[in-house]
Simulated assay, not measured.
Amino acid sequence: MARRPRPAAEGDVLRRQQLLRVRGHSLAWVPPLLMLAGIALIDFYTAGEFRMITWVVLVPGIAAAICGVRGTAGFAVLALLTYVLADSSYPTWYRSGLADFLLVGIGGALAVLACVVRVRGERHMLHMHDVADTTRRTVLRPLPPDWGGLDHAAVYLASDVEARVGGDFYDVQQGLHGTRVLVGDVQGKGLDAVEAAAALLGTFREAGYHEALGTVAERLELRMLRHSRHLAALGRDDGDRFATAVLIGFPDDASGVVDVVVFGHEPPLAVGPEGVRRLPVGTGLPLGLGELSADGPPPVQRVPLAGTETLLLTTDGVTEARDADGAFYPLATEVARAVAADPRAAEPRRLVAHVRDGTLRHSGGRLADDTTVFAVRRSLPGTGRKGRSPS
């Protein structure tokens, strides 16, 4: 799973920690120490002409920005001692007096306080980063290579970079009737959408193992309705949430076909050395809106799929990506051009990486919605995939 670039503040924290460490040892103390030594030397060689008080108060301030609390407190004390020693080394007419001494002391105390606030904020930010990563791994669990006899690759980019996880979901579940794939997009963003996605994935992982594909589709629709009613009973205003999805079955008893159920989602693209085609499948209502249809869940449709063809499924982050002129990303055209230039571009990992890079390039890196790119095909004989999804 590819990760969206970290929020600016979080990225700055991690980059600063990396830049100020060498072989596991922190060097954050070096800049403020060098500055303090430089101030002391300049003050010594310029006598009373140099206003040391103007500069020495910066030392604990710099330490507060890059050092820990203990380090900042140490530099606050060291700066005060250095000032006292420098001030007492001059004749009486060069001495600054009690007021400047208090100013250096107060400056050091404020720097320590600022450092305490900064360190607490960084610890909270990194803790939330770990919580978000754990949530993402729970909802979008890592998929082993060649899982269920399928070669697959996935990229997920959350538009809400602070949450780092959103309403897009995907999974692969092998079972008694073959291997199933589910890719979808919950309406809305944020943790409420994550909650709905987790509910659907839990049902898919259970029913996808035991049940026929049509029954899995029915269970998903029922789960979304139950979830919405539960939220409404709690008085929450997101009880009318729905989800678009594509449910795909790779049956064990037929290698040249796939079974597809489409819940209001864009149908998959079949990408192979011969080109790109959209699967000729109809689409039903999104999950959660099934009560509006008198025919029930959309039917299971069996369509041919060559062994060299890869199914490409994307969510709104790809299909609705716009450039500076407001033009949508031409997914099918770009993929067809890539496959024509290099037939190996139809391989799941290459295909996902190409669509990811093309979407980000087309939108200038500004994603209006959560973005999922998922590619899957039956594993070719003698080609076990050893790598992981592109990152």
Rank of each mutant, 00 (worst) to 15 (best):
L305H: 05
L305R: 08
L305Q: 06
L305T: 07
A306Y: 03
A306M: 06
A306F: 05
A306W: 05
A306H: 12
G307Q: 15
G307Y: 06
T308F: 09
T310I: 09
L311P: 04
L311N: 01
L312Y: 01
L312Q: 02
L313R: 02
L313Q: 01
T314D: 00
T314L: 01
T315I: 02
D316I: 03
D316N: 04
G317C: 00
G317I: 04
V318Q: 01
V318F: 02
V318M: 01
T319V: 08
T319C: 02
T319E: 05
T319K: 01
A321I: 12
A321W: 10
A321K: 05
A321Q: 06
R322Q: 11
R322K: 11
D323Y: 07
A324T: 15
D325I: 00
D325K: 06
D325P: 01
D325N: 07
G326Q: 09
G326S: 08
G326F: 09
A327D: 15
A327W: 14
A327K: 14
F328T: 03
F328H: 08
F328R: 09
F328M: 08
Y329E: 05
Y329I: 07
Y329A: 03
Y329C: 04
P330W: 14
P330S: 12
L331D: 08
L331E: 09
L331T: 10
A332M: 04
A332P: 00
T333I: 08
T333E: 14
T333R: 11
E334W: 07
E334N: 14
V335M: 03
V335G: 04
A336E: 13
A336C: 04
A338G: 07
A338C: 10
A338W: 09
V339G: 10
V339H: 08
A340L: 13
A340I: 09
A340D: 14
A341P: 08
A341R: 12
A341K: 06
A341W: 05
D342V: 13
P343E: 10
R344F: 11
R344E: 15
A345Q: 14
A345E: 13
A345S: 15
A346H: 11
A346W: 06
E347P: 06
E347I: 10
E347F: 05
E347G: 13
E347T: 12
P348G: 07
P348K: 05
P348F: 04
P348L: 05
R349N: 13
R349T: 15
R350H: 11
R350M: 09
R350C: 06
L351S: 03
L351Q: 02
V352Y: 00
V352F: 00
A353C: 02
A353K: 07
V355G: 05
R356P: 03
R356C: 06
R356I: 00
R356D: 08
